[in-house]
Nucleic acid binder design. Structure first.
Length: 592
DNA sequence: GCCGTTTTCGGCCCGACTGTTTTCAGTCG
């Protein structure tokens, strides 16, 4: 009996064991051994079941006798006694506490051993009573930082990354779509607008049997708790703590309700004002010939879709992503909104990792999966040597990788496969603005991304200077995730982004729109400015595994909020034009 | 817990930063 668990599930449990061991105060190298083993499993190029069946686990570097046994148990039985016991021996609150900045295994262990703190609530209380500050190794400042971290974590608890919201919403949306009593169906709210961070998930449907639909919705397996349920609206709490509202409207109300519940609030205010200016009234039930708030059907101006609503208010259609009152009305009054970039326009990703650094796919696996997805090229931009924790590449290793890529491309060409790997690097921008690898090696690469990964503490002036120095390097094609933010976790580092954009414009450097769900960086709010300066956008998945293609689907949605069109995005270029475009900066600097 | 031997135990990956100290521990990437 085999195949209870796949690679990523096994790796996840090994990683969790590592965390639990640390919390127990075990030898840190023991914990590290589990992390290494997890990585070895993820990097495996053949099926895990096969290796287990043939008893070859301990031949893998990083996996010894003990861990091999545990993996075998997991794969053959789907369970691991050692893991269950370990988990049972540690209060679950301790693991939660790891989420709070400045709290790691050591401090959490001290808090637990000395003060019996095993939950965030107890920790907050102890901080407020000043009992944490007097512990050895703790102090007033740390206590204040912990308290602040708790409050921050709480404020963000009701917010969710776009990818999380979609992964919860999509199966429910499909269920609703297929339901016999439901005729029309859509998500609304910030999810439909592709905001990078989502509050709750709004569903809107039309039905003649609202009661049955309500009950069906509340009975979905993902629903943890029903908060409210009436005739037209239900509110539930979904697994993972995301709140979701379902609204049911009549068929003829659907376009108005969709527009209304899609928002944004700011966008809706302008829409309603435009209605008033035309002696009309707009609300979620319709557009009415009336000076007063009303739902009187005899006053309704029928609209079959959102486009007609916009037209009635003297506007061209505005796609949901642009409904933020960020200049969309000024344009839509005069001309059609430009055709924004779509997922189907993207021919490849320019920022990706492989097993050569911290990615989970080998180069041949990347070729196979990304070609199958219909992409034409894929840049391999692993980390550079300073990114030690990510297994960054030094010059000799990078040269080996280049040789392998060359071989792979040769093979693809011989087989007549319309796909190629581009060589590249995500090179670290060091503290002084210099790069982590010498120009000579950068010159050999197709794509050079420069990114900041460390040293966030400097002030705005210092960081701005540092980044500008990096983009002035003739070999740097792309500035990677320019503000370094991690959504819901870490604010952007202080940087004068307008000055950076100017420097990119002057040097012919592209700016990345990084699609990692917690980055979405450069923020869509800055792209109209970048566009106005003529700066091109390189969309990067920052892919570490095959599943990350979903990031591109969502990332393009968020990039649309920045008014990006196919001509602004270099990944929309076919390969010959892209390769030519990549050489432009070098020509400008007279280095190629 | 793994690895690699100078074969049976000592080293394992590094640097910045912060806040705690009075020379360093813990966290984070």
């Amino acid at each position: 009996m085999f195949g209870f668990m796949d690679k990523s599930q096994v790796a996840a449990i090994l990683n969790e064991i590592a965390v639990l061991l640390e919390l127990k105060g075990e030898n840190p190298f023991k914990s590290r051994a589990y992390i290494n083993a997890a990585r070895a499993i993820e990097g495996l190029t053949e099926p895990l079941e096969k290796v287990v069946a043939e008893n070859r686990l301990d031949q893998i570097k990083g996996i010894g006798e003990s861990i091999a046994q545990k993996i075998t148990e997991l794969v053959t039985t789907g369970k691991l006694a050692y893991y269950e016991e370990l988990k049972a021996s540690i209060p679950p609150g301790l693991i939660e506490m790891l989420e709070i900045p400045n709290l790691g295994p050591k401090r959490i262990k001290t808090l637990y051993d000395k003060l019996r703190i095993d939950s965030i609530e107890k920790l907050e209380k102890a901080c407020k009573e000043g009992r944490v500050a007097i512990l050895p190794g703790f102090g007033e400042k740390l206590q204040a930082n912990i308290l602040e971290g708790i409050q921050r974590a709480r404020a963000l608890a009701s917010k969710h990354l776009l990818v999380e919201a979609w992964s919860v919403a999509e199966p429910i949306l499909n269920e609703l779509r297929n339901h016999p009593y439901i005729t029309k169906c859509s998500v609304a709210g910030s999810l439909r607008r592709n905001k990078e961070v989502i509050g709750d998930i709004d569903f809107l449907v039309t039905s003649n049997k609202p009661k049955e639909v309500m009950e069906y919705f509340a009975g979905q397996p993902q629903v943890e708790k029903v908060l409210a349920m009436g005739e037209t609206k239900a509110s539930v709490l979904l697994q993972g703590g995301i709140q979701s509202d379902l609204r049911i409207v009549a068929e003829h109300e659907f376009p108005f309700a969709l527009a209304y519940f899609t928002g944004s609030k700011e966008h809706n205010i302008v829409m309603r004002q435009r209605a008033i200016a035309r002696s009309l009234r707009l609300n979620e039930y319709g557009l009415f010939r009336s000076k007063e708030e009303t739902r009187d059907p005899s006053l309704l101006i029928p609209c079959k879709d959102e486009t007609e609503i916009y037209e009635r208010l003297g506007l061209h259609y505005i796609p949901p992503e642009l409904r933020e009152d960020h200049g969309e009305f000024e344009v839509a009054e005069k001309q059609p909104i430009p055709e924004l970039v779509k997922y189907e326009d993207i021919k490849g990703s320019l920022h990706n990792h492989s097993t050569w650094s911290d990615g989970h796919q080998t180069l041949p696996e990347i070729v196979e999966t990304m070609h199958a997805h219909g992409f034409k090229y894929w840049a391999i931009t692993d980390h550079s040597k300073s990114a030690f924790q990510a297994g960054g590449l030094d010059v000799p290793t990078l040269k080996k990788q280049l040789a392998e890529i060359k071989k792979i491309n040769q093979r693809l060409k011989e087989q007549g496969i319309d796909f190629m790997l581009l060589t590249g690097i995500e090179v670290d921008i060091l503290k002084d603005g210099s790069l982590d690898l010498p120009d000579e090696i950068l010159a050999e690469l197709d794509v050079v991304i420069a990114s900041v990964h460390s040293g966030f503490a400097g002030g705005e002036a210092e960081m701005t200077k540092r980044i500008i120095k990096a983009v002035q390097n003739p070999w740097v094609n792309i500035l990677g995730h320019p503000t370094g933010r991690l959504l819901l976790k870490r604010d952007p580092y202080p940087v004068n982004i307008h000055a950076v954009i100017d420097a990119c414009a002057e040097t012919g450097t592209w700016i990345e729109f990084n699609c990692a769900p917690d980055r979405m960086d450069l923020d869509w709010r800055y792209w109209p400015f970048a566009k106005s300066k003529g700066v091109k956008c390189a969309i990067g998945i920052d892919a570490h595994s095959a599943n990350d293609v979903i990031f591109l689907k969502l990332g393009v949605g968020t990039a649309r909020k920045g008014w990006l069109t196919p001509s602004d995005v270099v990944n929309c270029l076919p390969i010959p034009q892209l390769l030519e475009a990549l050489k432009q900066k070098r020509k400008r600097f007279n280095v190629a």
